[in-house]
């Protein structure tokens, strides 16, 4: 195996990541800005005609990172704690309940997430990255996709024909992309992760299959692809279930020689792939490549691979 050259690719990716992190903006401070305070000043009694409510966007990073605790024991320490995590901490309380601002930010995040779920992956992106689209057996749109996971795990007859025509059989590594529950996750991450995977395979001298995109895709479709194309390692990049206010998280599911009847126990997964708080997509690509090589060396995946390592 071309281990040294692969390491070189990975090192280059890591250097790029470090450079990107160095220019990232520092997080904002906890105190409310003077402008925000001014806007909140109450009009004088009898001045109803002057009532103007003109709010700053509460979803901007500076507003999000503001603490809701009026008199913390350790104000600087609190800021440091809040910077460690994207979770909603340091939010304070009204009695045992949430403060109004925190509650409304939460509800706003939920609102945009619900709206984002309805979208499809941009066909231009797929064309740009050379992915031809196929479908699973879901024919009734998103609603059917949600309530019929069985159909999302099977390739349609047209898909089977198209894939058989256009893809080479028995590659070392087959890469597929699925929309899953978030088109946005595919759109945000694919340009970064796909080239790393492709360059890595080439460097390592691995024979790569023709990549393609699957609409209305569930993880279980890997078995159908395995039966059809007989890849040694299959990597499925798929949009994850959207989190609150964030729909850009992707997973890479991987399996060694997937086939009908396989379950999650035969698969490995790299989850939470996204920029700014998750597993960086470049890093995830490098990690997936290492994992693929491990699968090829041990000729297995999932729980069995883990047990061999233990």
């Amino acid at each position: 195996m071309e281990k040294d050259r692969l390491e070189a690719v990975i090192q280059a990716v890591v250097r790029e990541l470090q450079a990107a992190a160095a220019v990232a903006a520092p997080a904002a401070v906890a105190a409310p800005s003077p402008a925000a305070v001014a806007r909140k000043q109450r009009p004088a009694p009898g001045a109803e005609d002057d009532l103007r409510i003109d709010l700053a966007d509460p979803t901007l990073p500076a507003a999000r990172s503001r603490s809701g605790i009026p008199h913390p024991v350790d104000a600087e320490g609190l800021v440091a704690l809040m910077e460690c995590t994207s979770s909603r901490i340091g939010v304070g309380r009204a009695g045992p309940c949430l403060r109004t601002g925190a509650l409304h930010l939460f509800l706003s995040d939920l609102a945009v997430t619900k709206d984002a779920l309805a979208r499809d992956v941009d066909p231009q992106l797929l064309a740009e990255l050379g992915l031809f689209p196929v479908r699973t057996r879901v024919e009734g749109g998103k609603e059917e996709y949600l309530i019929r996971p069985d159909l999302g795990r099977q390739l349609s007859q047209e898909a089977r024909t198209l894939i058989s025509e256009r893809c080479s059989k028995g590659p070392d590594v087959q890469i597929c992309v699925g929309d899953g529950l978030s088109a946005q996750a595919v759109e945000t991450n694919l340009r970064k992760i796909l080239p790393v995977l492709q360059a890595g395979c080439t460097t390592a001298g691995l024979k790569m299959g023709t990549p393609f995109f699957i609409q209305y895709c569930r993880v279980g479709v890997m078995n159908d692809i395995g039966d059809l194309l007989q890849p040694k390692v299959l990597i499925l990049l798929i949009g994850e279930r959207p989190g609150l206010g964030r729909a850009d998280s992707m997973s890479a599911y991987m399996a060694y020689r997937p086939k009908a009847g396989d379950t999650d126990a035969e698969r490995d997964v790299i989850c939470n792939i996204f920029d700014g708080g998750g597993v960086n997509p470049l890093e995830a690509g490098a990690y997936a490549l290492r994992l693929a090589q491990k699968m090829l060396a041990k000729q297995t995946s999932g729980v069995k691979l883990k047990l061999m390592e233990a």
């Binding site: 979770s87 909603r88 901490i89 309380r93 045992p96 279930r241 959207p242 989190g243």
Partner: peptide, 25 residues
């Protein structure tokens, strides 16, 4: 008890530290 019920790893909403405190009160 999840920070504001929003799990940043598992991408789902559960109940919060606040909810448990409120139910107890």
């Amino acid at each position: 008890g999840v920070p504001m019920a929003d799990d940043s790893m598992l991408s789902y909403q559960s109940t919060s530290f606040h909810d448990i405190a409120t139910l107890r009160h």
